[in-house]
Design a protein around this nucleic acid. Structure first.
Length: 159
DNA sequence: GCCAACGTTGGC
DNA sequence: GCCAACGTTGGC
């Protein structure tokens, strides 16, 4: 059982979209970065949980929790010439890209913003999201970091 | 809109 | 294998 953080742009697919999806479930597709691909394909297991993070937003923040309901399998959008995620180098015989299915467990009771995480960086240790220049869209989270962030959610005095 | 950081591409 | 050019990400 591992923990993760998944980034998404809310204007493309946000927590409201996931909430409205059938079974509040969606394939996490379109990831085209090898390191992130490896996490999706090799790292994530059924039942793993992940923070749902809004990037590129006015207030970048963790807004929800999702659960992996289907472990890594080939990302078929890569095979589709009409898809914005099309990659001719990926074929059904030799798929290059992978996805998982995630289901919304719940929204956080309040957003935990990136700014707030930075203010409490010392409680998070070496957290990849806070690293300068980090662009990876699938990040591992330690159990200690997971608990620390949930403690932020529960902290009403978050300044 | 700006710009720093990073990954990928492709010439050599 | 090196590295410059380029495209993308993402905070601000």
């Amino acid at each position: 059982m591992n923990y993760w953080l998944l980034k998404t742009e809310p204007t493309v697919f946000g927590v409201a979209d996931l909430e409205a999806a059938p079974n509040r479930t969606t394939p996490w597709e379109g990831v085209r970065n090898y390191q992130a691909r490896n996490f999706l394909r090799d790292g994530m297991g059924l039942g793993d949980q992940a923070f749902f993070y809004h990037s590129g937003a006015a207030r970048p923040a963790i807004v929800g929790i999702v659960e992996v309901v289907c472990a890594g399998y080939p990302d078929e959008t890569a095979f589709d010439p009409d898809s914005r995620y099309h990659d001719p180098a990926s074929t059904p015989a030799h798929p290059r890209w992978y996805r998982v299915d995630v289901r919304l467990v719940r929204r956080l009771r309040r957003e935990v913003t990136l700014a707030e995480l930075r203010r409490h960086a010392e409680a998070l240790g070496d957290f990849p999201l806070l690293r300068r220049g980090n662009r990876l869209s699938v990040l591992p989270v330690t159990a200690a970091q997971w608990s620390a962030i949930l403690a932020r959610e529960a902290d009403s005095d978050h300044h």
